[in-house]
């Protein structure tokens, strides 16, 4: 078989793999858009759920989900960026860097249900917090930590070495180099990592369903130790009532809203990466 024929076959196989991948994604998205579109209305988005979600809307589920992930982001951002800075600027031994990377990759690989069980045992059972949206945010922050730390570190590592060397030659201290060179120049990568981890966190059900969310009957929490409603757990609850067509339709509608949030975070991450990409060209 000639090299040219082999090339064509290999090219066709890879193209087929790409088409299969796109087809699965397209089918999934089209199904959600088709089914969910029929449930979506302004009233659905702005009104609270009634009758265990089979009627009414999802306003508190949307607000609850946003509260959980935004708080988680606020908790995880300084820890992840701080860890990335320490690894990039202060950690001397390559062995220690490798150990830290191993820990982060291991954390990233832990199944989300394990985070949920940990939260249930440690916070709810041992500390006695009960159902608490804040504990849910803490657990989501733990889940987001490896992704954001690795993304922040990758952004810092991608900076040209010459930036730091030139700043050192100008007599800037390590702290000034971090504040004025490393953080501003890697902010695009950090925010991109944050958006990607937010997109993942907002769709998580397992880590929060035992510790932070109630399936119905809650509005906005008045304290840290109250549960919230969230989109993923609401969809789960509705899916369990699959014999009720109205509940199923609302589940499709809530799924479309959830996917829209994930898409919005991903699009924002893409936009930020494009906007800041010129910084890495030198």
């Amino acid at each position: 078989m000639s090299r040219s024929v082999k090339n064509h076959i290999f090219s066709a196989v890879t193209k087929l793999a790409l088409c299969l991948c796109a087809a699965v994604l397209g089918f999934l998205l089209l199904s959600i858009m088709w089914q969910g579109g029929r449930a979506i209305s302004l009233d659905f988005i702005l009104s609270p759920a009634r009758d265990f979600g089979t009627s009414g809307g999802i306003v508190f589920q949307i607000l609850g989900s946003l509260l959980l992930v935004v708080t988680a982001a606020l908790i995880v951002l300084p820890i992840a960026v701080g860890t990335a800075i320490y690894r990039e600027c202060y950690m001397q031994l390559a062995q220690n860097k490798a150990r830290l990377d191993t820990v982060l990759y291991a954390l990233n690989a832990i199944p989300s249900i394990s985070y949920g069980i940990f939260g249930l045992i440690f916070f709810v059972n041992i500390l006695g917090t009960g159902l608490s949206w804040f504990v849910g945010s803490l657990i989501l922050a733990m889940m987001m930590l490896p992704t954001l730390t690795l993304a922040s570190h990758a952004a810092m590592q991608a900076l040209p070495k010459s930036y730091r060397e030139n700043a050192q030659a100008l007599g800037l201290s390590q702290g000034e180099i971090i504040r004025h060179v490393i953080l501003p120049q890697s902010s695009g990568g950090i925010v991109t990592g944050l958006m990607i981890s937010l997109a993942r966190a907002i769709g998580e059900t397992a880590p929060i369903m035992f510790i932070a969310t109630a399936f119905s009957g809650v509005s906005l929490p008045q304290s840290l130790l109250e549960p919230v409603a969230s989109l993923p757990t609401h969809i789960l609850a509705l899916a369990q009532q699959s014999t009720d067509p109205q509940a199923l339709q609302n589940a499709w509608g809530a799924s479309l809203v959830l996917v829209s949030f994930v898409a919005a975070f991903s699009a924002l991450a893409f936009y930020i990466r494009q906007k800041f990409s010129h910084l890495g060209q030198r």
């Binding site: 040209p160 010459s162 930036y163 060397e165 030139n166 030659a169 060179v181 120049q185 010129h278 910084l279 030198r282």
Partner: peptide, 8 residues
């Protein structure tokens, strides 16, 4: 240094 490096 040898290669000019201006900050963005």
């Amino acid at each position: 240094f040898q290669s000019p490096c201006v900050f963005p």
